[in-house]
Amino acid sequence: MTTTAREKLRSRAAHLGPERRRPQLLDAALEIAVARGIAAVTSSAVAEHLGVSRPVVYSCFADRVELLEALLARESEHMLTATLDALRRARGDDPEAAFVAGYQALLRVVADRPQSWRLVFVAHPDPAVAGRFQQARAIVSRSASQWLGPALKRWWQVDDLDRKLPVITELFISSCEAAVRLFLDAENDWTIEALGDFFGRSMHRAFSGV
Rank of each mutant, 00 (worst) to 15 (best):
G102H: 05
W156A: 05
R142S: 15
L148T: 07
A29Y: 03
T169D: 01
W147S: 13
E19A: 06
D185G: 06
A90Y: 07
R142W: 12
A47F: 06
K8S: 10
A178E: 13
E7D: 12
W147K: 11
E170S: 11
R36H: 11
A39Y: 11
A105H: 06
L171E: 02
S202M: 14
I168R: 07
A151C: 13
H15R: 13
V34W: 02
L152T: 07
K164C: 06
G51F: 01
E75A: 03
S44N: 13
D197H: 09
S116Q: 02
I192E: 11
T169R: 02
A186T: 03
R54Q: 15
R154T: 05
L50E: 07
R118H: 04
L72F: 12
D185H: 12
K8E: 14
Y58C: 08
P23H: 06
V57T: 06
A111W: 08
R181S: 03
D112Y: 08
G51M: 05
C176V: 11
F61P: 10
L72I: 14
A151F: 13
I168Y: 13
Q134M: 12
T3S: 15
R88P: 03
W156Q: 04
R205K: 14
A186F: 00
S141T: 11
E193L: 12
W190M: 04
V122E: 12
R137G: 05
K153Q: 15
R205Q: 14
K8G: 04
T3K: 13
